[in-house]
Design a protein around this nucleic acid. Structure first.
Lengths: 193, 193, 193, 193
DNA sequence: CATGAATGAGAGTTCATTCAT
DNA sequence: GATGAATGAACTCTCATTCAT
């Protein structure tokens, strides 16, 4: 097993990610994955017992492959620059057409509450809060931002994004609306945007 | 029929609402509803062909039974009072244990985009935005609030709430966190809360 | 009851005949008849317990309403004239688009063998054989036809028609083919047609 | 699979043929076949989606297994011998008690008109017409038969048989009646039978 | 490891038939 | 008589899951 096994496992994860992106989590059956992977029914069961187990690995894989946000920040960027960049990345994520797993994430997490170590969505959420809080803190210290409580402000931003993400899936949202909220945030922090 | 029929119909809707609140939308089968209603298999089909059709009526029923927010506002309330009241109502809605249909709403709306007339969730959303914008506008005129663009601010508040709602279902959220965001909003509007 | 009851009964029979003509016998459910008659489910059951019972009355009604073939024969008609007329009536019956119950008859009779008194299809069949035999006999006596055994010749003709009728329902048949068989029959009887 | 799969498929076809022979086409459900085959509910669906699909293969199988009529003709047989043999084979087919699919054929063809390639009943019909026409033609040339138009005479014979077949299913027919019609045919062709 | 045929549980759906009004 | 809501039996169909090869 080992290498070869892991190759196959990763192949399944990648194909399944596409399937979950297309159909969400709840609508995907083991048969769907088998068909998409073009492997045997029994073959899939050697690796995964259920779609939930499989989705857990899809989330893990996504978490690992996520590009490091920090790496795309230039050295001379201001706090506002960095915050704006972050918000634009989130916008990209929300509006991307391909491999958009947001719906699947929601549907999965409605049903399952993964143990802490396996809750990659929570890790991402918490990481984002922490990062935004840090950015705001730095901005506040440098006088760029006006903010009394960076952590609460960070939660505010992250919940706002979360709200736009879920609304995108239920009611729809336009990129323009998203942009207006970005501006609103920056203005709230006292930035002339 | 008519009357009798409508009584039964309403009975089914009410029971189904409890079932959807317990299990979400996607996990509910016609059989679940039949069992909960204690009627015959065929009996339910006289009224509804599918869970989606049934859920549509549940949403409609909820929309109609929703208490009129305006009616609970006292005459001498300030804009801040009213906004606070609204946010506390939303908090109640989010944290209520019984008949909480939020998850079901999400799951349903991921799958179906009801026609405008039937999209009670959107109506609620749009109505809330409008109302909050109005409250902020009035508050801004009276000098209570500081706000340049009440509509965008209103969207900000509603998306924020939406974000906390969906997060409550995926990662969990504490009442305390919700309260902190309420405070943050009011402070952003220049209120000493 | 009495009159009024019989009126309703006849109404049901007439509507049902249309339904059977459209869908055959096996494809018709009591519900189909209820819907077509625009009466209540229970209402139909007051008159008929099943589609088979109903179809029996449809057959009876058809048998009674069938126009008397003899009445359309002119006084100076020859045996060949009469035989031709009969064959043309059969052709009309086979190719008629409206209220063609042939398929329903077959499907019903595959399932049920009505008691002699109720077997209107058999009565019709036997009556036709008898009549054709008589016509041929008369024709033979008058020298119009050449035929040793009019009864067997009559059976031959009736079975032939039966074959074309069933073939019409299974494989299709053209009016032209039917005509050719008419000619063939007459020639077999020694008529220059 | 392939082989094994085809073995099972043939097994299903053979069992289903018996079921169709017993109950006709319209009265047979997938469950009937499942029960008769002693396989699982889902098992049958691996091979056939519906009784109509299954019956198509039953017809195909019957067509393939049908003994070659030509092979039972002795070398010194006259045209009349051959024709008589054919008619006797048809008689056997009509009166056989086991695996008589005639009723099922009718019921199926009332509902479906298979594409040309799949209409084995029509192929048989057309083939029989052609063959009988050929026999008559040969007989006419050799002076055995008197017949002006072998093709129409062939159609006459085939429709006659068809009529006796369907009558056998609706009203019943005796072997003796069949025999009389055989005689009648031969006499019509000028044979002293 | 891998296959895919086979199983069987369970959901969906339709209708004949009953029965309180 | 007449109604139509209600019942429940029976059928269709899909998939998670197993297992012999």
């Amino acid at each position: 097993m080992g290498d070869k096994s892991n190759q196959k496992r990763q192949y399944i994860i990648d194909v399944a990610a596409r399937v979950f992106a297309e159909k969400g989590y709840k609508n995907v059956t083991m048969k769907d994955v088998v068909d998409a992977c073009d492997i045997s029914r029994g073959g899939l069961y050697l690796y995964y017992e259920s779609t939930s187990e499989l989705f857990l690995d899809v989330m893990k894989s996504q978490a690992e492959s996520g590009k490091d946000f920090m790496s795309i920040i230039s050295d001379d960027a201001t706090a506002a620059d960095i915050l704006l960049l972050f918000l634009q990345e989130e916008k990209k994520d929300l509006f991307k057409k391909k491999n958009n797993l947001n719906r699947a994430y929601y549907e999965y997490l409605f049903d399952y509450k993964p143990a802490k170590g396996d809750n990659y969505y929570k890790k991402k959420f918490d990481g984002n809060v922490k990062m935004v809080a840090k950015i705001i803190e730095i901005g506040a210290e440098s006088g760029e931002f006006t903010c009394e409580n960076p952590v609460i402000a960070a939660f505010n931003i992250i919940y706002l994004i979360e709200g736009m993400k879920s609304s995108a899936l239920t009611l729809g949202i336009s990129p323009d609306s998203f942009d207006k909220q970005i501006l609103f945030i920056l203005q709230s922090l006292g930035v002339d945007a």
